[in-house]
Amino acid sequence: MSVPSHRSGIPDHGRVPKYYAVKALILGEIAELGVGASLPPERDLATHYGVARSTVRQAISELVIEGRLAAQRGRGTFVAEPKLIHPLSLASYTESLRAMGHEPSRLVITAEEVPADDELAAALEIKPGAPVVHLERVLRADGEPIGLESTHLPAERFPTLLDGLDPSGSLYRYMQDELGVVWAEATERIETALASPREALLLQTNPALPMLLMLRISRDPSGTPIERVRSLYRGDRIGFEAHLTAKR
């Protein structure tokens, strides 16, 4: 088995783990096969590269985690679609995806009023026990689930929200056009996380795969919180980018 000539990811001492060398070689095959093509069985790849099946399995597992391959139980492993790269902004999810040439949709899981616990009340600057509107929705791109979004809003401020909103549509667009809400700023934190069994089932993903957890508080021009949003995204299907400028 020949080791790839490039040094990306190769330690300075030059000793390359076998699985990493196999991973690099499989990446070369992926580029030739194209999206949707089936990868040869592990047994065949192990024979072809002259390594153990466990070595091939580890290489493929990392490529699945990175979103380069997609494993389907009972069917095999396939070259995955490129990741969807979503801009970090206060724009509507619907508008952002359509601008990138994808068709957005949402599957409504929960649309209800619940009392705010102490943590949620502090985030929204309301009294503990005050009613909040809770929307939980699976976010989809071209029919594929990519995220699970849980949004809480003060019910006292938005008492008619559940009466007029189509929960499968754009919350931002409805609040802007129908309720006159102005979005001024948001604080967003991004972490890595693992999905719970329930979340993995809703997102149709393996609970062992890493997820991107995003926590956001949005505010209006007066600084009053509008919403708290917890979004869990499939790390194998979506990435995020931000445009940064230097302070002057």
Rank of each mutant, 00 (worst) to 15 (best):
A130Y: 12
E156P: 08
V133D: 00
K127D: 03
P159S: 05
A141I: 10
R137V: 02
L135Q: 01
L162Q: 09
L161Y: 11
P159V: 02
L135V: 00
I146R: 01
R140Y: 10
D142N: 14
V132T: 06
F158V: 01
E136S: 05
R140H: 10
K127E: 06
A141E: 12
F158M: 11
G143Q: 10
L153T: 06
K127H: 09
S150I: 08
L161H: 08
G147T: 09
A155E: 06
L139Q: 14
I146V: 15
A141S: 15
E149C: 06
L153P: 08
K127A: 07
A155N: 06
P154G: 00
E149T: 01
E149N: 09
P159T: 00
E136M: 09
I146Y: 12
H134C: 06
R140A: 13
L148D: 05
T160H: 15
L161V: 01
G143C: 14
H134S: 07
E136V: 08
P154Q: 02
S150F: 01
P128T: 15
T151M: 02
L161R: 09
P128C: 13
L139G: 09
A155Q: 12
G147E: 10
T160K: 15
L139W: 13
A141T: 11
P131N: 14
D142K: 10
P145G: 04
T151W: 00
D142W: 08
E136G: 08
P154A: 03
R137C: 02
I146D: 11
L153Q: 05
R157K: 15
A141M: 11
I146C: 12
P145V: 11
F158N: 05
V138H: 06
D142M: 09
V132Y: 01
K127W: 06
L139E: 15
R157G: 04
L162R: 14
K127V: 10
L153D: 02
L148Q: 07
R140C: 13
V132P: 01
L139H: 12
V138Q: 07
S150H: 09
F158I: 04
A155K: 10
T160V: 04
R157E: 12
P145L: 14
H152N: 02
P145A: 11
G129P: 10
V138F: 05
P159G: 01
R137W: 05
V132I: 14
D142T: 04
H134P: 00
L135F: 11
I146W: 10
R137A: 12
P159C: 07
A155R: 10
L135A: 03
L148N: 07
A130P: 14
H152F: 14
L135D: 00
L148K: 09
G147M: 07
D142L: 13
D142I: 05
R137F: 02
E149R: 02
P159N: 04
L148H: 09
P131A: 15
E136N: 05
L139N: 12
G143V: 14
G129M: 08
R140F: 06
G129I: 00
H152A: 02
D142P: 13
E156V: 15
L148G: 07
